[in-house]
């Protein structure tokens, strides 16, 4: 089974020093090693953004797709080869902005795959514009007067749309993040992991310190029931925060918001998907019976 070092390519990561992507990369490599996943058994898919450059740094079977389109690309893989576990990495602009439609529909399909969102609340690769999860009033080159709209609440959207696994991690806590990764990959169904991953270059507000001062773990919250969808939704609403809020005024929950095991996945309802579909093209298909309906 491949070890952490085997998952590394000869290319050196190009993320900024201190970028949260380094921590997420490490958490993923270590989780893959601990899960003892052979290379042949899983496929990675990336969208476009700083996170996506990680496609060059993780040695595996993978596809670096288009901006916003990682989920449908991954869906095509998952729905054509049931032997592959599919793990998707996306950014916040990538997954919640331009790819937001696919996010909603992938959730409601409950496709068996893991979707990890690198959420730094900013566009990094395109040099610092506001993202769909940027705080309201945040000033960026594309919003010099401040962001007007409310941020997307990805946890709330996923919970409301019937997700069967929704978690949020923080790149500043790798052991906790690994627990979430492991649970998400082992979950049978669509697993959403939104990860706060501070951008050290462009987002001077939501920094590691900002999060360290505010995050708390749902696992440690007394009375929190991750099988209660309403509680999960209400808790997701607490994530909204304004730039001016003090650490004691707004807290940011991380951990598993919601999980529901035993639900049928999309693949479960495809009885024809028992083996890789490439086998169907080993030879021409016999369609003589189908043709009869058109014959005189």
């Amino acid at each position: 089974m491949p070890k952490v070092a085997d998952f590394e390519t000869a290319l050196t990561p190009t993320w900024c020093p201190g970028c949260g992507n380094h921590a997420m990369w490490r958490a993923l490599k270590e989780t893959l090693e601990e899960l003892e996943l052979p290379w042949t058994d899983f496929a990675m898919v990336w969208g476009i953004g700083c996170h996506g450059n990680g496609a060059d740094f993780l040695r595996c079977q993978g596809f670096h797709g288009l901006h916003g389109r990682a989920l449908p690309l991954a869906t095509g893989i998952a729905l054509s080869n049931p032997d592959l576990k599919v793990i998707v990495e996306m950014g916040d602009g990538d997954g919640y902005g331009i790819g937001g439609n696919h996010f909603i529909h992938s959730v409601r399909r409950n496709i068996d795959m893991t979707a990890i969102f690198h959420n730094n609340q900013i566009y990094g690769l395109t040099t610092g514009q506001a993202s769909p999860t940027s705080d309201q009033f945040m000033k960026t080159p594309s919003t010099p007067g401040g962001v007007i709209e409310e941020p997307v609440n990805p946890v709330g959207v996923a919970v409301a749309q019937g997700a069967t696994f929704v978690a949020r991690g923080f790149a500043g806590d790798i052991p906790h993040l690994k627990e979430l990764y492991r649970a998400a990959i082992q979950h049978e169904g669509f697993a959403v992991v939104d990860v706060f991953q501070p951008c050290v270059t462009w987002n001077k507000i939501n920094t590691f310190k900002w999060f360290r001062d505010r995050v708390y773990k749902l696992e440690e919250l007394e009375g929190y029931d991750p099988t209660d969808r309403t509680m999960a939704f209400e808790t997701s609403m607490k994530t909204f925060h304004e730039l001016t809020c003090a650490p004691d005024e707004c807290k940011v929950p991380i951990g598993v918001f919601y999980r529901e095991e035993g639900m049928a996945t999309y693949q479960d309802d495809l009885p024809q998907l028992t083996a890789p579909l490439h086998k169907l093209a080993d030879s021409p298909r016999d369609i003589s019976k189908t043709l009869e309906a058109y014959a005189g």
Binding site: A43, P72, L73, G76, S80, H278, L280
Partner: peptide, 8 residues
């Protein structure tokens, strides 16, 4: 994505 797995 499906073509990536060798599926037609």
């Amino acid at each position: 994505g499906a073509a990536f797995t060798g599926t037609r």
